[in-house]
Every structure is written in structure tokens, then in C-alpha cells.
Design a protein around this nucleic acid. Structure first.
Lengths: 83, 83
DNA sequence: TAAAAATATATTCAATAGGGTATAAAATGA
DNA sequence: TCATTTTATACCCTATTGAATATATTTTTA
């Protein structure tokens, strides 16, 4: 499961999918890294104010990593959300 | 140029490298997306409080995208910084 | 090495995060 | 359908953002 993200919204959706993949609740992942359930909720809903520190804590809980790479030209099978 | 990032610090370093690659100043990238020079500086220095909205604006200015993927086991040539 | 450009740091301010806590609303299941 | 679990909201609070602006420091280059 690899997902390109270009906005807080698409990032939120990706994180939610990853969490569900692992069968975890927001409460579970949050508490695993000392965060409140409502914080996870806001992130997944695309809150643009979410801080990087908070993001990386969540990525850690979900055993995910981030890759920064040059933006490719959108190809046919991309799902939009590109700005 | 593809970079794994696992913390605000490593993200900052990656963004700085990408900016230099393009021969742009902090002022230039910042103003390209309506951000102050000092904000770019803080991001590159690894400020954990930087918001996602701010991050994505910068990524846009640098024509970069983010990929979320499962964390691989660290291999020999990784530079640490893994938590 | 002097000037210019780039980057880091500082201050004030309005806005908002995230913790703590509570509850409403929605989804899941027995 | 009722109870349980999960997710979304809300409030208060303290801390910190990022804009605006200014200046110090560092780096580049003529």
C-alpha cells in the first residue's frame, strides 16, 4: 500500500486507510504514542494545522514512513486531488 | 532524488536539499507561495510545530510530492534517525 | 576584503493546536 | 433493536504557530 499525498486531506485519508488496515481504533493508535483520540480524528479529517511533530508520532504508531520525491506528471490512473 | 523522512529534522534537511537543487533562495520559494522567508528557515531547521498546510505549500513550491509507505526494516546504508 | 545576498533570530499579535475532559453522533454487533 | 464501540465535536487552557517587520549572522561573490 503506497499512497501519494499532496494535501492535508489526502494525507488524512491515507492515514485512516493505513490505520484500518491494521485494525486499530483512533484511541488505540493515539494512546500508543501518547495522543488523544480527538487528535487522530482531526488529522484524518484533513486539519491543515496539524503539526509535523504530531504527524510523525502518528506515522510511527502506524509503522509508516514518508518519502519526498519529485512530483510526477499526473498519469491517467491518478485520482485527482492534484493542485 | 528520493528521500525517506522520519522526523521534522530529516524532512527539513530534505526540503533544504531540494530547494538548493533548484537554485532557489528561501525568500524565493516562500514568496512563490505566499510565505515569509523566516518560515522556510524554521521548517528547514526541523521545527516540529510546522503545520501541514504550510508544509504542503512548500512542497508545491518545490514541485515535490509525498509518499506514505510501510516502514522498511532499516538496512545497512541507512543513516540512522530512525525511531 | 568589502559589499551583497542569504539565512537565522527576535518581537508582537491574532489564531489555532493539542491535552484533558465530556458528550453527541455514527457505526458495529450481539 | 439495544448495547457497545468508535468517531466527531465541544469547551477550557496553555503553548506555539506564522505573518509582519526588523536585525544579526553567515555565506557568497565581485
Amino acid at each position: 500500500m503506497i499512497q501519494k499525498v499532496v494535501s492535508p486531506e489526502s494525507l488524512g485519508l491515507t492515514l485512516r486507510a493505513a490505520r484500518k488496515d491494521k485494525g486499530l481504533s483512533q484511541k488505540a493508535v493515539g494512546h500508543a504514542v501518547g495522543m488523544e483520540q480527538h487528535t487522530i480524528s482531526k488529522i484524518e479529517k484533513g486539519n491543515p494545522g496539524t503539526g509535523l511533530g504530531t504527524l510523525f508520532r502518528l506515522l510511527s504508531a502506524l509503522e509508516l514512513e514518508l518519502v519526498v520525491q519529485p512530483r510526477r506528471k499526473p498519469s491517467g490512473d491518478d485520482l485527482g486531488d492534484v493542485w
